[in-house]
Design a protein around this nucleic acid. Structure first.
Length: 420
DNA sequence: TCTGGGGTCCTAGGACCC
DNA sequence: TCTGGGGTCCTAGGACCC
């Protein structure tokens, strides 16, 4: 028996987080919205049963939501991030080889074992996370990551398995035949369309597809997915997270912005967010990319989208320096006469804060390390935005809406749940 | 009226080099 | 008529993930 993988996945994660502090939500249909209260990004089983789709615009299912008294929440990322960390900590105590794959998922690598032993292990994981954190999870076992994903899906969808499923090493073709090719990890909308044109409709079809055809039409990634379905592991467990390549911050506006001053404020705020992340990772950026776009859904309004990238003479982590460069780039991109929906910044060419040598012709930049350290300390202690650059503005009319947010129960002293 | 945000990887094509 | 070949690097765009 070959070594294998497990995938642990939190059930309806954001909804489960909301329910943890609001037990009255149990059994009710619940949804969580994306950043701007724009789309549905998490649904309880009851909400799924009503036919509410993942990624559906909120305004389009308002009637359905009202009719069934679906409980609606704006997303509360500090809460979800904190609970995610707690789940991963418990997992790390139980398993030596864990890869945190996303906010609500982790792969585990295990030595070969009998199916009964795996089942018992999965049940133990599930019970421990439930007891110590309170979040329900599902666990799937398989010989590759892609097959573990499929096992997890079966664990979640078929209640008779009690949230844990071990994909049999042999004779699981019938299970693969029941899974649409677009539901296989790594096969998105475009690829599944291509596959269907080639007569490949199920996970089993993809497993048995011709290598040359796959390589030609789906590139190496499609071939890799097919190989993984055959039980040959191509995607190893990456135990230490690879170094970040880039840090992005962007938001849609609460209402369209037409003037450069408004864009300028918003961009400066996003740079401040990205730069704080940069410093938290002890990195510097050598390159700043800025982009802006109008609302592509308003087809009748004039459309404009553009981006530009500036290289810095000297890598920096200073919010003030980065704002200066980003704002200059924005000035080049801006065209009047458009209703903008979004600006964003990406910090690239990241490297260790200690890298490089001072530039011969560049004076040491303002907004140096001591100032940034003080800024981060104040904002960590008293909340983000306590201290910020004037460039970020004060009234911030462009700020987006988040009207149905639950309290930050675990990450803000002011919003602790009160007992009794 | 109202449609998320933050990432990674792969490929094609152009620039440039010898 | 016919105008090298092979390599690297960079960028833009597309596709995927949660």
């Amino acid at each position: 028996m070959a070594p294998l993988f497990a995938l642990l996945d939190c059930n309806n994660f954001y909804v489960s987080c909301e329910r943890l502090f609001n037990p009255g939500l149990a059994g009710l249909p619940v949804v969580v919205l994306s950043n701007n209260d724009g789309c549905i990004i998490a649904r309880s089983n009851e909400a799924k049963a009503l036919g509410i789709k993942m990624g559906e615009p909120f305004f389009r299912c308002r009637d359905l939501i009202a009719a069934h008294q679906v409980q609606v929440f704006s997303s509360n990322y500090p809460l979800y991030g904190d609970l995610s960390q707690r789940v991963m900590e418990v997992l790390g105590q139980l398993e030596p080889e864990v890869e945190v794959y996303s906010i609500d998922e982790a792969f585990i690598r295990l030595p070969a074992a009998m199916p009964e032993a795996l089942l018992a292990n999965g049940r133990h994981l599930r019970a421990t996370v439930k007891r110590q954190v309170g979040i329900p999870v599902s666990v799937g076992f398989g010989p590759t990551k892609t097959l573990a994903k499929i096992a997890n899906r079966i664990a979640k969808q078929q209640p008779e398995h009690g949230g844990v499923f071990v994909l049999p090493e042999q004779g699981h073709d019938a299970l693969l035949a029941a899974i649409e090719v677009g539901d296989v990890w790594g096969i998105g909308r475009r690829q599944s369309q291509k596959l269907r044109l080639g007569g490949i409709r199920t996970a089993l079809d993809l497993k048995n597809a011709n290598d040359t055809w796959l390589r030609k039409h789906l590139t190496v990634t499609g071939l890799r997915t097919s190989t993984e379905l055959r039980g040959v592991s191509c995607l190893p467990l990456t135990d230490s997270p690879p170094a970040k390549q880039s840090i992005t911050s962007s938001r849609s506006f609460g209402q369209p912005v037409t003037d450069l001053a408004g864009l300028h404020e918003a961009l400066a705020s996003y740079v401040a967010i990205a730069a704080a992340k940069l410093r938290a990772e002890r990195l510097t950026a050598g390159c700043v990319q800025v982009y802006l776009t109008t609302n592509r859904f308003r087809a009748r309004e004039p459309q404009y989208a553009n981006s530009t990238t500036v290289s810095l003479a000297l890598p920096t982590a200073s919010t003030l320096e980065l704002i200066r460069h980003a704002v200059a780039a924005l000035g080049q991109l801006y065209r009047s006469g458009f209703a903008y929906q979004k600006v964003g910044v990406t910090l690239m060419d990241l490297g260790a804060a200690s890298r490089g040598q001072p530039h011969l012709f560049c004076p040491p930049p303002k907004g140096g390390e001591a100032l940034m350290t003080a800024l981060d300390k104040v904002n960590t202690r008293w909340g983000r935005d306590t201290l910020h650059s004037g460039a970020e503005g004060f009234l911030r009319p462009w700020k987006n809406k988040q009207t149905m947010k639950s309290p930050s129960y675990t990450t803000s002293w002011h919003e602790l749940p009160v007992v009794g």
